[in-house]
Write a protein that binds this DNA or RNA. Structure first.
Lengths: 204, 204
DNA sequence: ACTAAACTGAACTGACCAGTTTTGTTTTGG
DNA sequence: CCAAAACAAAACTGGTCAGTTCAGTTTAGT
């Protein structure tokens, strides 16, 4: 009767609670979401909610963290060996921006910023799996290009942070609600990447 | 007896309430600050608080807005006629970053982002007097440089947003609590400005 | 000095909410 | 089939908080 591919009744409920909590937390934040709302939305009794999660904080942490990990798991990969850097970076950032500026991605960024003080451990986890990881991989990639002789990039960490800064549309503004929140077209990303590469190139 | 340079008793109280509210809101955000805390910190009775401000929301709006306007009023000026662009931009951004990354500045940015949905009108006001204004003035400046023939900048709006993006350290991360929150030294700012200018220059 | 307005302090209202408890009912594993 | 666990529904506890009320005090203008 119990199949591994089928969730047990208990795990099914747990999933429902997580989904409902996630949706509410992402739409309203932590303070403005009540456990009664979660109860109602999940279609589960309140006692069951507290059977699965000891507190509102723990539910928030797990609901948001798991989704954040899912979202950021889709980050593209950088490959220093193949493709021209301009093309590689353009494609990489185009994918990255699609993730970050998606509904879920921007909500995650918003939560990371607005609830970062209340949940520092959580925020750090999300940061590490998202922006932090992107920054690290980008620095590594640029350093490889430098080692290759493809480009001359003396300070890869510095360059990586500058590159991310110039490619990303202003997230803070978007989160605050003046949100075109439009994913820039590929051509715009390419134009930005070229501006950066020319700036680095002309430095030498 | 009543001197214009001296606040009336009533205005004095009002000022005390605003100051206390501002400090608490900036340190704790809207939800985690209670009106009883404001009452205690202002050294004024609760009834007096509600004599001056009809609600917690209105107090928040006025307290934060007035301070934001003060902070951002100190934004430096751009002058296309004097000084080399590299020097002008370096000084401009160095001043800007000192304001934005000061204790009050970064708190304002944080509040703008985290409470933006609850107070959209307020957030827009602060945005317009801060980032929006900076963006507008920067675009104007770059367009003047283009008209001058000093630089070739076909799309000043695009260039301005890219320039701001590359110069600003990653505010979101800082606000989330992974905050070096270090004001970059002038040399670092200059290096970034030169990266941008070279990138623009090499495009033509 | 007198009046009206503003202030104090403290108690109070009404609402909301996190978390618990209770009384059963359903499901699950052996 | 039978216990043990998980569940539903709803009431309840204890605490917090925005905002009000009120009786009595202080201040400001005339």
């Amino acid at each position: 009767m119990s199949d591994t591919s089928v969730l047990s009744r208990s795990e099914q409920k747990r999933r429902q609670i997580l989904d409902a909590g996630r949706e509410l937390f992402m739409a309203q934040g932590f303070a403005d979401t009540s456990m009664d709302q979660v109860t109602a939305k999940s279609g589960v009794s309140k006692a069951t909610v507290y059977n699965h999660f000891p507190s509102k904080e723990k539910l928030f942490e797990e609901a948001v963290r798991t989704r954040a990990e899912e979202v950021f798991a889709a980050l593209p990969e950088l490959d220093a060996m193949h493709k021209h850097p301009e093309e590689m970076l353009t494609q990489y950032f185009h994918s990255l921006l699609q993730i970050l500026l998606s509904d879920d991605g921007s909500c995650m960024c918003f939560l990371l910023m607005s609830e970062g003080r209340r949940f520092p451990d959580n925020a750090r986890l999300i940061y590490e799996s998202g922006f932090g990881r992107g920054l690290r991989e980008m620095a590594l990639y640029l350093a490889q290009l430098d080692a290759n002789g493809t480009l001359r990039i003396p300070d890869a960490d510095w360059a990586a942070s500058k590159l991310l800064g110039i490619v990303m549309p202003p997230l803070p503004m978007m989160c605050a609600g003046f949100a075109p929140l439009i994913i820039p077209p590929v051509d715009d990303v390419r134009r930005t990447v070229r501006l950066f590469l020319r700036g680095m190139d002309a430095a030498n």
